[in-house]
Amino acid sequence: MVSAALDHPGIRLTAEELLALRDTRAPRNGHRPATRRPGAVPARLPGAGMDLREIRAFAEGDDTRRIDPAATARTGLPHVRSFHEDRDDTTLLIADFRPAMLWGTGPALRSVRAARCLARHGWEAVARGASVAGMTITSSGISVLPGRTGAQQLSAVAQMFAHEHDRALEQSDSSPTSLATALVCAVRLAPAGAQVWLATDTQGVAPEDEPALGRLARRRRVMLLCPLDPIEVSPPSRALSVRSGTSGRMARLRPFDPTLLSARMRTLNVTLEAVCDDPS
């Protein structure tokens, strides 16, 4: 339980506000699995599934391991088999609640806004029948919730987000958990073909985290979700006084420029999404 000083909307995160983001207008997904594996849906991703799509003439660039001997012998020309690709439709929501996220100059902390954005993407996954997994990163460690389907699962993720955010607000540990450690764990939670939403600040991915992030993005669609604080979008035009101990100086803030961060992420096969407003 957080102290009374922190128990205010925008500072304290509640499961109820995340559950309220569900779009009741979205149609309920009546999808049934395309194969006998639970959660498998057809998708155009690298790699073949088990269901035969067609046998066709060999073309330059085709994998010779897929040559069909019977069709080749029958026609006298090389023929290959192609298959319907399958994947497990899983969405992993990663909320960074380390100290750098626990601040804000607007109506809500950046950590709270990050959780709201993740919840919206979680509800979108639930609506299409996907499996949803959750992870939080705080100064005290990592909490995970393995993937399952349904609204009840998203409710459990919301409860975990709220609980871990309360703990993060009360923590005073100055040595937060490494993001790389969390990303190694994320590889086990998100199967190949999964979608991963990582909500952190614009400085949340350090150079030493990049190898782990690159491995996570190797066979998954990874989105770096950065909720921008109002002061990063429209900073004051005047110079501000910055003090540290007995020293101080004047500095002028500039709006956040996503160019460099976006370029860094592209080299890792990660997509940057900078968010200026809360989901409505």
Rank of each mutant, 00 (worst) to 15 (best):
A5W: 01
H8W: 05
P9K: 03
I11A: 01
R12Q: 15
G30M: 10
T35K: 03
R36W: 06
P38A: 14
L45G: 06
L45P: 01
G47Y: 14
L52R: 10
G61I: 14
D62W: 15
T64V: 15
R65T: 08
I67F: 02
T75V: 10
T75M: 12
T75Q: 09
H79T: 00
S82Y: 00
F83C: 03
D86Q: 12
L92E: 05
L92W: 09
G106H: 07
A108T: 09
A108E: 15
L118S: 03
A119P: 02
H121F: 15
M135P: 06
S140Q: 11
T149H: 12
T149L: 05
A158P: 04
F161E: 03
L169F: 03
S174P: 15
L179C: 01
A180C: 04
T181M: 11
L183V: 01
G193E: 05
T202A: 13
Q203I: 10
P207M: 15
E210I: 10
E210Y: 02
R215F: 13
M223Y: 09
M223L: 07
L224V: 07
L228D: 04
D229T: 07
P236H: 07
P236L: 05
V242Q: 06
R249D: 09
R249P: 00
L253A: 11
P258M: 07
T259M: 09
L260S: 13
S262I: 15
A263W: 02
P279N: 14
